[in-house]
Design a protein around this nucleic acid. Structure first.
Lengths: 395, 395
DNA sequence: GGAAGTTTATTAAGGTCTTTACAAAACCTC
DNA sequence: GAGGTTTTGTAAAGACCTTAATAAACTTCC
């Protein structure tokens, strides 16, 4: 957005070539006829031809010689498609319990994915697992580390987006003293970015929704985090944007010393089960009285109409709604999407939150559940890595 | 960001001409030598020469024949400057008590400004005053309505940014049924935009600070509103972003039927005086006991060390901090800037808010007072109008 | 099996724009 | 008034896109 300096004729070619490449990408995994590109880009055929030639030479796209089926008569079209292997990206999700990695090609196809659980969440052990997982996923996809075009790592805690240092990570002991960023930069010859996991989950959710608008994507499990995506771009603020776990909800909150924030202590997965347990003790008529209680059980009970469970869920929903209402009023997001473990609660929780938010805000956002599976964060990391590659095309 | 279609050689000229025009603008009121533009834009002299020629022809810039002083020897330079009168913009601030208007030229120089107070804040009367103020400011600046290049109107309430309709405006009775946007579009031949006043104030404050980052600018008087500016661009969300007046603060809030939000009823200017009045009754040792009390008096008393006043101010600050803390956690703004009537409270209030926010947030933002005078909103409106003009240069 | 028709690729000429290079102008200083 | 300096102005060259015309390759129909 800053200065667009030194404009000579050559930039035209770069502009147009980029335009053609974008068009090829938008046709994603399918090969596209050259004539199609002419229509898509609005450029003329000779220009497109030149651009494609350049792109093939640079290795970004490849020809599809066998123009097999669906002929309508006429000279067979030259068809090209993205050469995915030109710039594969690596995503990494370093959680307190599991480490997963994935490699996507330029078109967003998943070439490999690895998931490994960690027994002890000590930092040193974690780092070893990270290295092992990276090695495995590279092998599975058949790439050398030097071929990777961008790396994005998701980690819990607060990350300084400039240096990649982890500033605060209560859930992994010793994690802040590990310079993960430098560690990885030694292994790869490409940009390495470390980013908060909730932020990346938000990015993944936003991409799934597509289109512009403001999104508040909440990760809700033992802990609570959120990411803000505005018109497809992640909002970082001074760095710690989206840390909803530290919102102080109304009412008393138990004091703990594990670095969790007030809202996490009030309505994190653990707090929900604890609340249900207390309620079950004083209300033995509830189905919650027997069997082990966890958050899923509470939501299941509420779904079947158990009054005690319903009250707990409503309480949780109200606390959550009150906590985020000020942010919803300030941001006016189009949607609030909930992911993470608690998201499996489904419609019961959703309805309660929607109801309370309607009371507390002027233009209540859509409240929804993230449709993505467990690898939301990993997908977000890969998405951001792809963005990085696409952003610096003219390399 | 969408599609940059149909790139031929002519776009180069447009691009470079725009680049030169930007450079001329950045030198703002001072005329600039042609050779200087060459350095600033990175283009070559013939290119700059051509561009300047085009711009002069189009009326955007003008020559400065008398190359008077500061010669260093050599052929006298051709100097050009922005022809401010080429595209004057009109800003309007329609408040419940006053209507003000201003006209800026392209370089941001204030050519005229008019302010008029309104006795009855009935919508029909207000509209008459608006028309009169517009006529007056046009006359003062010596322009015809058709010459204005952009109009931005600030109004309290929630505005649909697409249609310009006012959706909610409790402070002016009947204001929502007036189609201000259409009314003005009939008078001007240029784009007319209606925007929430707090949003425009935020824009003005953000421009004063300059540079990127996230800003939460609060307007705090009888009512409370805010605007969010991210990297220089106003954030609207679904339309009602920044409506902090409707945040529900902890504790009981008096119920009124005047359309004000809970936070406004709790710590609006009126609520502050009411709170002080109550405190003075039970604490006759306070200096607040004698003389008429208004918000300014409370802050003044607190500044001199009056304990009762100090407690009131601290209460207000705590309520405010608790109310916006969730939004601060989610947005992680670089700064929270307070404007409006209460902003005159100064350091007393500021210090208290800063203290409380430090407790409630992870990366506490700078808390400051808006340095702009009473015409913050008007300045913001003019700023946005200028942006509009600059955004659509290639007209 | 050949001709017509259709779709696409290729090639050549023309125009616009920037760049490079060079010459002219205008002013100051000595 | 000569020399120097800074700037403007002009012409030729290079790069790129576009229009238009031509050639190619394949399907379909007769």
């Amino acid at each position: 957005m800053g200065d667009e300096r030194a404009v000579g004729t050559p930039v035209l070619r770069r502009l147009n070539t980029a335009s053609v490449l974008r068009a090829v990408r938008d046709c994603a995994p399918d090969p596209v006829r050259l004539a199609e590109l002419v229509k898509l880009t609005g450029l003329t055929r000779p220009t497109v031809g030149q651009a494609v030639e350049d792109l093939v030479e640079a290795g970004w796209v490849q020809h599809h010689h066998p123009a097999a089926a669906s002929r309508k008569g006429g000279r067979p079209a030259v068809r090209v498609s993205l050469r995915g292997r030109a710039a594969p990206v690596l995503g990494l999700d370093v959680g307190p319990h599991t480490v997963s990695a994935g490699i996507d090609d330029l078109a967003g196809r998943r070439l490999a994915a690895v998931r490994r659980s960690v027994d002890h969440n000590r930092a040193s052990r974690l780092l070893t697992v990270v290295d092992a997982v990276i090695a495995r996923v590279l092998e599975e996809a058949g790439f050398d580390a030097d071929e990777i075009a961008a790396v994005v790592v998701a980690t819990p805690g607060i990350v300084d987006s400039g240096s990649g240092r982890i500033l605060l990570a209560p859930s992994v002991s010793g994690w802040t003293s590990v310079n993960l960023s430098d560690h990885l930069r030694d292994r790869f010859r490409c940009p390495v970015r470390v980013e908060n996991d909730a932020n990346l989950a938000a990015l993944a959710v936003a991409r799934e929704r597509a289109g512009p608008g403001t999104l508040l994507a909440v990760q809700w499990g033992e802990r609570l985090g959120a990411g803000v995506v505005i018109d497809g771009r992640l909002h970082r603020g001074t760095g710690a944007a989206g840390e909803i776990g530290f919102i102080r909800p109304p009412g008393r909150v138990p004091d703990t010393d594990d670095g969790r924030g007030p809202l996490e202590r009030a309505i994190g997965a653990e707090a929900i089960t604890e609340q249900a347990r207390r309620a079950a003790r004083t209300h033995p008529e509830s189905v919650l009285r027997d069997g082990p209680i966890d958050a899923a059980a509470v939501f299941a009970a509420a779904a079947t109409g158990d009054a005690v469970a319903e009250r707990v869920v409503d309480d949780v929903a109200r606390t959550f709604a009150h906590a985020i209402a000020p942010a919803v009023l300030v941001l006016a997001p189009d949607a609030v999407v909930i992911g993470g473990g608690v998201a499996r609660a489904g419609p019961v929780l959703l309805a309660a939150i929607t109801r309370h938010l309607a009371d507390l805000t002027l233009t209540p956002p859509d409240v929804g559940i993230s449709g993505l599976a467990e690898d939301t964060i990993l997908t977000g990391a890969l998405r951001m890595a792809l963005d990085e590659v696409w952003h610096q095309l003219p390399a």
